Structure formats: structure tokens, C-alpha cells
Computed example of a mutant assay.
Amino acid sequence: MLIGAHISISKGYEHAVNEAISIGANTLQFFTRNPRGSAAKALDPNDIEKMKKRVNETNFGPLVAHAPYTLNPASDKENARNFTKNIILDDLDRMAIIGAPYIVLHPGSHLGAGVEVGIRRIAAILKEVTESKKDVMILLETMSGMGTEVGYRFEQLYDIINLTESPENFGVCFDTCHLFAAGYDIVNDLDGVISEFDKILGLSKLKAVHLNDSKFGLGSMKDRHANLGEGMLGIGTIKAVLTHPRLEDKPFLLETPGGIEAYKKEIALAKTLVS
């Protein structure tokens, strides 16, 4: 099982990998830069070399990057879309150097223009940024549908990816909290939800899973993560996700409250659930 958590890279990539290993993880996720801004930590070639050596020694990975929350390719403002495009282009170059195969991206919010307009705007940005950047795959995250978010239905993700005209350059990241909040009943019909995804997008598109419980119920459209087994999904659903034969090869990444110590306990819990 590939199990990890969201780890800070503030002390470097080698430190992040070592911290992940110290809590029992064998994969991790990290923000490419300040999640609420645009500042990016300068890449240190020595740090990257040491990180890659550590990864190889321990059979660790994959490293999964996460784009900052400030990006909105669906924005109605041209300057915001240009900002998003430039950050993604820069991050794709930086992640290729680091060796992260995936970067998770929130599709964005249409801000009142409507889902269809948002889909076209997102696809236009993604088409442009991937024309010359193919070393790192962008994973569109399944969203909760909060506010004017785009990407909370599988059909919306399909339309975005299809409109880029290069669907091979894109994948999807499941978020268990978001799926449930968006109305996908993974508590009572996990098989059905996975089959629906397979029918619409193809299961080969699913590259990673954000493993989060949910503070709110089915169809709430509220993005509020809870610790494993302490929310509306419950420990039975978490176990079902972790042990599902069509998900077992995916990296499971915790984004639950409580920080490193909580992650350590939850990784240990996840391992008992699959044993």
C-alpha cells in the first residue's frame, strides 16, 4: 500500500521525505509554493540530489505536488487567468526537475459565469500550458461543489480534459471528502461510484486519492475534512476505499487535521485496516 500525507517542504525536499518516512509513510504530497500566495522556495540542486538518493534507497514515492489555492483558470478576469497560466508553467518546469510525476490542481471557480463557461476557460488554460510541458501530469481534483466550483461532477472533469485536445496529458485525483460532499455515495455504493467514474473517464485516469473523512453529510457541498473514522464517512468506508481492488495501486494521501502527529496515528491506523 502506498500511504502518505501532506508534508511541508519548508526545510527542503530531503527533509520532507525523511519526515514522511519517520511517520511510516512511503509517499507524500507537498505544495509547489505558498498555498495562499505565489512565492516559491528556490530549488537547491544539492537538496534535490540528496532527496532523490533517499527516495531510491527506500523505494519511496511517488512524490505528488499540489498547486496553490490562489490559482483559478476559470476566472472571469484575464489577469487572474494569466497569473494561473504562468504559475502552472513555472511549476511544471520545477516539478520536472524535482522528479514529481504529478501535480494536483483544483479546476477553479466560475464566479457566476456558469459551469459551461468555466469548463471552457479551464480547458483553454490547460491546453496552452501542456503544449510544451509533458514531463509532469496535471491531476484535476474532484471537488465538493462549494460555491461556484467547477469539477464536482465526473462529466465536468471529462469535458475539461476532452476540450484540451490532449487527454493523455491529464489525470484525476479522487478526494473522498469532496466526492461525498458532491453527492457521490461512497458510504453505501463505493463500487457504483468507481464504476461510474470508469464509465465516464476511464479508471486509467485515476492516479491518486486524497484520503479524508468528511465533517458534513452526503451532498452537503461543504469542503470540511475530518480525521479518519471521525466524520460522516466512518472507518468502514475508509477501510473499503483502502482495500478496494480497483484502488489498491494508487497513492493514498492524508489531508486531515492535526499535523504530523495526527498523520502518524492515521497512517498506522490505515495499515491495520489493510492487514
Score class of each variant (00 low, 15 high):
Leu89Met: 11
Gln156Tyr: 07
Asn34Ala: 13
Thr142Ile: 15
Glu49Ala: 15
Pro107Val: 10
Lys52Leu: 01
Gly112Val: 14
Leu71Asp: 09
Asp90Ala: 14
Thr148Val: 00
Arg121Phe: 02
Pro101Leu: 12
His106Asp: 01
Glu141Pro: 02
Ala113Ile: 03
Phe30Asn: 09
Leu139Asn: 00
Ser132Thr: 13
Lys53His: 08
Tyr152Lys: 05
Ser144Tyr: 06
Asn72Arg: 04
Val55Glu: 10
Asn46Phe: 03
Leu139Val: 07
Arg120Pro: 00
Asn56Trp: 01
Ile103Arg: 10
Thr148Asp: 05
Lys77Asn: 10
Ala100Arg: 04
Val64Glu: 01
Gly37Leu: 10
Ala124Val: 02
Pro73Cys: 12
Ile119Asp: 11
Thr142Gln: 09
Glu131Thr: 12
Met143Pro: 02
Gln156Ala: 13
Gly99Tyr: 15
Glu131His: 11
Pro62Asn: 07
Arg94His: 10
Ala65Glu: 02
Pro62Val: 05
Asp76Asn: 11
Ile119Met: 11
Val136Ile: 06
Leu157Ser: 10
Pro62Trp: 09
Arg121Ala: 04
Thr148Phe: 13
Leu43Pro: 13
Lys133Glu: 13
His106Asn: 07
Lys127Trp: 08
Leu140Met: 09
Glu78Trp: 11
Asn82Trp: 10
Glu57Pro: 00
Ile103Glu: 00
Ile122Cys: 12
Thr142Asp: 00
Pro101Thr: 06
His110Arg: 07
Tyr69Lys: 15
Val117Ala: 14
Pro45Met: 08
Phe30Trp: 06
Gly118Ala: 15
Phe60Arg: 03
Ala100Asn: 05
Ala40Ile: 08
Pro73Phe: 13
Ile87Trp: 08
Phe30Ser: 02
Leu92Cys: 00
Thr84Arg: 13
Glu141Ile: 11
Asn34Val: 02
Ala65Phe: 00
Asn72Lys: 04
Pro62Gly: 06
Leu111Lys: 14
Glu49His: 13
Leu157Cys: 11
Ile88Lys: 03
Ala42Trp: 07
Asp90Met: 09
Gly112Pro: 13
Arg81Ser: 02
Val136Phe: 03
Ala113Met: 15
Tyr152Met: 09
Asp44Gly: 08
Glu149Gly: 09
Ala100Met: 02
Met143Ala: 06
Met95Asn: 08
Lys50Trp: 02
Glu141Val: 10
Met95Asp: 04
Lys85Cys: 00
Ala40Thr: 09
Asn59Thr: 04
Thr148Ser: 12
Leu157Met: 04
Lys50Thr: 12
Ile87Arg: 13
Leu139Lys: 04
Phe154Met: 07
Lys134Val: 12
Asn46Glu: 15
Ala67Asn: 10
Gln29Ser: 13
Lys85Asp: 01
Gly61Ile: 11
Leu28Asp: 10
Asn82Arg: 14
Ser144Pro: 12
Leu43Gln: 14
Arg33Cys: 05
Ala124Pro: 00
Ser109Cys: 14
Ala80Thr: 15
Ser109Asn: 12
Ile98Asn: 03
Gly145Met: 09
Pro68Arg: 07
Ile48Cys: 02
Ala100His: 05
